[in-house]
Design a binder for these strands. Structure first.
Length: 387
DNA sequence: TCTGGGGTCCTATGGCTC
DNA sequence: TCTGGAGCCATAGGACCC
């Protein structure tokens, strides 16, 4: 069973602003370089979709109401919905903030057929959160996800095993998991339009065009073969932050300041999760939208902002891109492992910083964010002559 | 029209070791 | 001693998903 919340962020916002129901509503920042985070079905009628540049969205739907996103609220409602899922079966696989796969094969005796379980779930979600969701039911994850998508909004669709291929084959190739804009273009060039076309294309042809793994996967999916089971909980493989500036930056000092802020945010999240990373990744996007990443693997794991920053700023300096126009910077840590696993004392200078960063964590935990900051990140509010 | 931020997975390539 | 191949790891980039 695949459960998918309908226009999740937008629906959560409407809980607080019921007077906006029935109107085209877009969730996203109003800034010049922002994109649509979510849109109500009324806004989608105008051709507004997630990830679309806000400028285009507002051109298509000038009378849309634009609301700022509130991620803490979405997390709150996500937890409520996931808790309802957990109530129905222990086999729940979260997929992002607003989707989940449920294996309800074992719930038959207690709760009834999958259709009945889905009905209970949808009723409970609506009663306890005021939100609508759609559910797809099938023999495999991929078909269940397709079914929930096609049943939207506020729908429930069962695809019986015997009907799977009749359901799947007429769908456009973009319905296949893993087919985005680029792959669709390549497949279209081969003359393929529907999933059925892909199914009837030799495996080798697909692999030659898309690579061994992608070709094989697509061929399997096109025959509704999907061996993946519902897996509960998985460890994070990387933690990162990135930010797009309101306008391109050419001052390396500003870049470094932002790298320090990102390093701090990443380190805080590592410590909160009880993990440490070993590979530091710097990401830069330039004025022409070309993007590069440069990484460096350390001799041992760390969760200290100071160390992450030292590495990432060194990598940045080594690039010799000091005077390029920079649109986005990002910092990411990979090769995560449980904290405390590495030998202590290899970096003698760490201890002072560890103490300082632990104190910052403690103060933040007690009094909230922003009270304690690195001096380099404090915004000056007074005039220079006050010095 | 002009492109966010959080991620995962795959592929290619080059260095190193056996 | 030289050479080639296999296997592993690190790195960079691209495509994709929510």
């Amino acid at each position: 069973m695949h459960v998918d919340m309908d226009a999740f962020f937008a629906s959560v916002e409407l809980l607080e602003r019921p007077e906006l129901r029935g109107l085209p509503v877009i969730v996203g920042h109003r800034g010049s370089r922002s994109v649509v985070t979510a849109a109500t079905y009324e806004a989608r009628k105008y051709g507004v979709n997630s990830a679309m540049p806000m400028s285009i969205a507002l051109r298509r739907c000038p009378n849309a109401v634009v609301l700022e996103p509130h991620f803490d609220r979405y997390t709150h409602f996500s937890r409520m919905v996931m808790a309802i899922c957990d109530d129905l079966t222990p086999l729940v696989e979260r997929l992002g903030i607003d989707e989940a796969f449920l294996d309800v094969a074992g719930a038959r005796k207690l709760l009834g057929t999958p259709y009945e379980v889905a009905t209970i779930l949808r009723e409970r979600v609506l009663a306890e959160t005021g939100l609508h969701c759609s559910v797809g039911i099938a023999a495999t994850k991929f078909i269940a996800k397709l079914a929930s998508g096609l049943s939207k909004p506020d729908g429930l669709l069962v695809v019986p095993l015997a009907d799977t291929l009749t359901f799947l084959h007429p769908l456009p190739i973009s319905a296949l998991w893993g087919v985005g804009a680029k792959t669709e273009e390549q497949l279209t060039r081969l003359g393929l339009r529907t999933v059925g076309d892909v199914a009837n294309t030799p495996l080798l042809t697909l692999q030659k065009k898309l690579g061994d793994a992608a070709g094989a996967k697509l061929h399997q999916l096109s025959w509704a073969r999907d061996p993946r089971s519902v897996t509960v909980g998985s460890e994070e493989k990387s933690v990162g932050h990135e930010v797009t500036f309101g306008h391109d930056i050419t001052d390396p000092a500003v870049i470094r300041r932002e790298l320090l802020r990102m390093s701090d945010q990443v380190a805080v999240r590592l410590r909160r999760a009880g993990v440490e990373g070993r590979t530091v990744v710097l990401k830069l996007r330039f004025g022409d939208f070309t993007t590069i990443t440069r990484s460096r693997t350390l001799s041992e794991h760390t969760d200290l902002a100071r160390r992450i920053y030292d590495e990432v700023v060194d990598v940045y300096a080594g690039l010799g891109k000091d005077h390029e126009r920079v649109r986005l910077v990002g910092v990411r840590m990979e090769q995560l492992a449980p904290a405390g696993g590495s030998a202590l004392g290899l970096w003698e200078t760490d201890e002072g910083w560890r103490e300082a960063e632990n104190v910052m964590d403690a103060v933040t935990a007690k009094f909230g964010r922003g009270l304690v900051q690195r001096a380099a990140l404090v915004t000056r509010r007074h005039t220079p002559d006050e010095d």
